[in-house]
Design a binder for these strands. Sequence first.
DNA 1: CAACGTCATGGTAGCGCTACCATCCGCCTC
DNA 2: GAGGCGGATGGTAGCGCTACCATGACGTTG
Lengths: 371, 371
Amino acid sequence: MGWHGDSGKDAEQHFVAALGRRRRVRGKAVTKPRSRRGGGRPTIADVARKAGVGAITVSRALREPERVSEDLRRQIQAAVDELGYLPDPNARALASARAEVFGVLVPSLTNSVFAEVLRGIYDSLSDSSYRIQLGNTHYSGLEEERLLQVFGPQRPAALIVAGIDQTPTSRRLLETAGCPVVQVMETGPDPVDMMVGFSHFDGGKAATEHMIEMGYRRIGFMGARMDPRSQRRLAGYRAAMEAAGLFDARLVTTTPVPSSVTLGRELFRDALARMPTLDGVFCNNDDIALGVLFECHRASIAVPKTIGITGFNDLDMMEVAFPSVTSVRTPRYEIGRLSVAMALAAIAGKRPQQPVVDLGFELKRRESTAR
Amino acid sequence: MGWHGDSGKDAEQHFVAALGRRRRVRGKAVTKPRSRRGGGRPTIADVARKAGVGAITVSRALREPERVSEDLRRQIQAAVDELGYLPDPNARALASARAEVFGVLVPSLTNSVFAEVLRGIYDSLSDSSYRIQLGNTHYSGLEEERLLQVFGPQRPAALIVAGIDQTPTSRRLLETAGCPVVQVMETGPDPVDMMVGFSHFDGGKAATEHMIEMGYRRIGFMGARMDPRSQRRLAGYRAAMEAAGLFDARLVTTTPVPSSVTLGRELFRDALARMPTLDGVFCNNDDIALGVLFECHRASIAVPKTIGITGFNDLDMMEVAFPSVTSVRTPRYEIGRLSVAMALAAIAGKRPQQPVVDLGFELKRRESTAR
DNA sequence: CAACGTCATGGTAGCGCTACCATCCGCCTC
DNA sequence: GAGGCGGATGGTAGCGCTACCATGACGTTG
């Protein structure tokens, strides 16, 4: 096995010492060749020597090949291949004051919405040499600040953060990060730098209007967690309900508890107990909607006849559910992709004309509201 | 705004040049104080100067406080606070030949199973100063090799990889990574270093035995993706079926297509068309099981009476579904937590006695098999 | 009380790479 | 044909930190 930590730091020190980086000879330090702290991987100097060029030319050949003559380029490539040279990203980062890292901050890792954003980011970055460093804010502004503080000194190439409601401190950290910043999931009036998302207010409004149009009147709102995006969906719901003269504060059921299918069932039970006349629910997200659907099955409540259900995000399974569930399809993967594309463009000096991109959403009308 | 990439590299060069790091005076290079490439953040030297100690003592006070007298420690802390000093992780990594980074390789970001492992890893690491670098192998051995090649030169503090079926190349890369390695999700006979997981074979076997015990006889296996773990669940299913004299190759429906709820529905339709006498299904995972359940609803097939359903992983929603779905509860979050704990112990030189930990699973018997 | 640890601290020399010049060469311009 | 200019290449000097060794001040031992 390659690694043994059997006695920790000590073992490591001995290990390094055993490499014998330097040796004292009559009080004078001499360098023993080819034994480095690093453990003997080839360095750029080795490549340069083998190719018969200066180290800087190797560096250039690797990063800006067009600035090196084809002859040397070939020679250098041969030396690289022969030695199996791989540049040390840490040394690069130190020398250039820029790490090839995208910092990504999401509020949750298990919420599949962010998982898909992350997948989009990942897929757009996998051809490049950028690495992804992940941060989970747990929906906490304070934690977001802490993470930005940690990410900053590393000088990431770009930062992608979920949401537009940063604390003043976070906002300052983003503004002074010295790299492109993309706020994702939502759009808003005052980007730190760039934004990719859609309007949660409009999404909530469209979903609610659809239900009203389908003849539902006592439409409840059911929300968990109630992060800023949920709040805006609620505001959209309220706007639609008020416009139709249907709003009633008692129709709104929310909780700060994290969202889950289980919670959806419970919220629905509570709501129904309080408001037996409920004839529809617009759910904060699809987990809640699914919980409501299951509870309807269990309690033999007819969907969409007695109760109409609308979800939010349109997870894969909503279409397959029985009855299939109306939901607002959100462009999560696309948000991830585009955020990276915009960041890469900015890094390359080609800032997008339009720093704020609204990718919209699509209301998927399905059986659960087809009264 | 802090950053403008309006004209790319050029702008950046001008920006740096404008900082005026050095100036020529009569042909002699002089250093202009306090203007660095880095952009003027305080360095360890600044802290050392302010605290009236050597730089190395500051370094020690930060990393091994117990090796510095309390007096100096206080002085240094004061200087750090006053200057807002944050160590540069890139410089640290270069000097110590060790980055404070955990490399994490998962086959999928959207599969909620890995999302939960990731959450466990994240939660266990969030108190420490370790960062998480994410790799998505897309279930590809080749991609895994490529990612290990990228992660290696960075000298991560530890590597956590999903699965135990690495290619020979990947295995060699892991063995020579020079850091603790934890293979997660499964256990097996020949760890690269450490392992945390459970037996997918046993899980599949237990689930199938349960269905047999409940009186099901023509139990189908339904699997998507069929990665190595799915294969082993299938092997467990087969072992149980053969032991009961019930195995029939026509009962097995698999596809290399990625798993989804939609796919579950389709697999079930196919299987039923081929084998109308089917009286139960053991599903590869809960997505498939959910697809089967929905299709049963849609086709008015009674569950558990006509068809019994068992899933795998026991996602939150399986308990809430109607009828609730029997599933094999797997310790995903715990795997993430423990893998980090073991890696941290190894880094600290306290290797766990037991390098391979089987966290087991729990069969959750529910309505979907309660005939 | 001398010889010898042990502890706290510091100096020096890199880690492997890239930014910033300087240099050199060939070619174009007037 | 001298001067200039742009493109290709290289030397030097760090980037900010830590490993290694040295040093000096103590205590401890025989």
